[in-house]
Amino acid sequence: MAFGFNQESVNGGLAMLVQHFCTQQGLPIPLECFQYQGTQRIPFSIWQQILHQVDEQYQQPAVGLQIARLIEPAHIGIMGYLGLSCQNLGEALQRFEHYHRLAYDCNDMHIDIHNQLVEIRWGISAGKPGQLVDETAIGLFKNIAEQLIHPAPLTLSQVEFVNPQPAHPRIYEQYFGCPVTFNAVQTRISFPVNLLAAPVNRADQTLQQLLENQAAALLHELPEHDDFDQQLQQYMTQAVQQGSICIEDIAQRMGLSTRGLQRQLVKRSYSFQLRLAQVRETLAKQYLLDPKLSLIDIALLLAYSEQSAFQRAFKQWTGQTPYQWRSSQHG
């Protein structure tokens, strides 16, 4: 079976999810699952093949929903840990909207609020991957969100799919606990806005340690105790993690005008872009020490739109590619 998605990809941890499902059901594990694990990205066309192979073996409707029941934060890599580090569902959704490509790099995800409902929607700019792929993705999202706020219930109001209605639509309404429609303009789920305040029920120690390591590394990089520079690197780090980096925004956060910030930088004999590059380099090295993070994960966490841009910048900083530097740290 041929598929038309050549550039898109999903997190390699989803291969382990499929292995878990197949083992539980006594099904043959697709060979592709053994090729893409851990930090490897799975090309989207391969992900489609994996799901269709499982569907052919399972021979029951809505297999994507059943696979999604077994999802754990580790299966979607750093995005899962980011969700667990948040205070409430609203904060987690903001992180998911910004970093969704780390888990599922296909059609873009957008979040809006209308008439006291939160609407999360996925377009079709990259194409329609089909009901099996879409139901798996939306099922994964639902189950991850439920885990984050458990024991509070995730009460959905509506689910919409862009695909034609399958043979057993009632299964979908039972699974999502709300009306489900098909042949929609966009894939969409909605739920009451008050759920945004639902607290995340646990913190993840792995991510906390990673963030502590970043903070320690950044502090170590400072040439001397300088309150201005500590504040600058703190706000730069936040801006990088939020994916919005500009001198005007940083200046506003620091309570300065743009010209005032530039004057302070001149006094210290460096530019905004130079200090930003130093912050990114330090963060990049910390991320590269974590074997769970792929290069595309790290590129997105550093607010680069493409992995290639991150690789070029890293080689300018260190004279090595990210892969070479990571390999040298592990002997």
Results as ranks from 00 to 15, higher is better:
residue 108 D to Q: 03
residue 322 P to F: 06
residue 107 N to F: 02
residue 212 E to R: 12
residue 165 Q to K: 05
residue 170 R to W: 00
residue 204 D to S: 06
residue 64 G to W: 00
residue 181 T to N: 02
residue 108 D to P: 05
residue 37 Q to A: 06
residue 295 L to K: 02
residue 160 E to F: 07
residue 63 V to F: 00
residue 27 L to N: 11
residue 138 I to P: 04
residue 275 R to Y: 03
residue 56 E to R: 11
residue 82 L to H: 08
residue 79 M to Y: 13
residue 84 L to C: 13
residue 203 A to Q: 14
residue 118 V to F: 04
residue 208 Q to Y: 00
residue 14 L to S: 00
residue 51 L to S: 05
residue 225 H to W: 08
residue 308 S to L: 10
residue 289 L to D: 06
residue 113 I to D: 00
residue 106 C to K: 00
residue 280 R to G: 10
residue 50 I to K: 09
residue 196 L to V: 13
residue 151 P to V: 11
residue 284 A to C: 13
residue 231 Q to Y: 00
residue 303 A to Q: 13
residue 322 P to M: 06
residue 167 A to I: 07
residue 311 Q to A: 14
residue 56 E to F: 14
residue 109 M to P: 07
residue 122 W to N: 03
residue 186 Q to V: 14
residue 303 A to R: 15
residue 317 W to E: 04
residue 226 D to W: 01
residue 69 R to T: 14
residue 183 N to R: 11
residue 181 T to K: 04
residue 205 Q to L: 14
residue 203 A to P: 07
residue 266 V to G: 00
residue 206 T to V: 11
residue 312 R to A: 15
residue 116 Q to M: 15
residue 207 L to A: 00
residue 86 C to K: 05
residue 67 I to K: 03
residue 6 N to F: 11
residue 287 Y to I: 11
residue 19 Q to P: 07
residue 84 L to P: 15
residue 315 K to H: 15
residue 30 P to W: 05
residue 98 H to G: 11
residue 40 Q to A: 12
residue 88 N to M: 05
residue 174 Q to E: 01
residue 123 G to N: 12
residue 305 S to M: 15
residue 13 G to H: 01
residue 28 P to E: 11
residue 240 V to T: 10
residue 42 I to C: 03
residue 119 E to P: 01
residue 264 Q to T: 03
residue 264 Q to A: 04
residue 4 G to D: 05
residue 18 V to A: 03
residue 284 A to L: 07
residue 328 S to N: 07
residue 193 V to Q: 11
residue 134 D to P: 02
residue 328 S to L: 07
residue 195 L to T: 08
residue 286 Q to N: 12
residue 187 T to C: 11
residue 296 I to K: 13
residue 254 M to G: 10
residue 146 E to F: 03
residue 251 A to R: 02
residue 245 I to L: 14
residue 208 Q to M: 03
residue 133 V to D: 00
residue 170 R to L: 03
residue 45 S to Y: 08
residue 130 G to D: 02
residue 272 F to P: 08
residue 145 A to V: 15
residue 284 A to F: 08
residue 72 E to A: 08
residue 124 I to D: 04
residue 239 A to G: 09
residue 253 R to G: 02
residue 226 D to L: 12
residue 281 E to C: 08
residue 33 C to M: 09
residue 140 L to Y: 02
residue 20 H to S: 15
residue 321 T to C: 10
residue 82 L to D: 05
residue 314 F to H: 14
residue 292 K to D: 01
residue 55 D to H: 03
residue 312 R to E: 11
residue 183 N to P: 04
residue 231 Q to D: 03
residue 283 L to C: 09
residue 329 Q to F: 02
residue 149 I to Q: 15
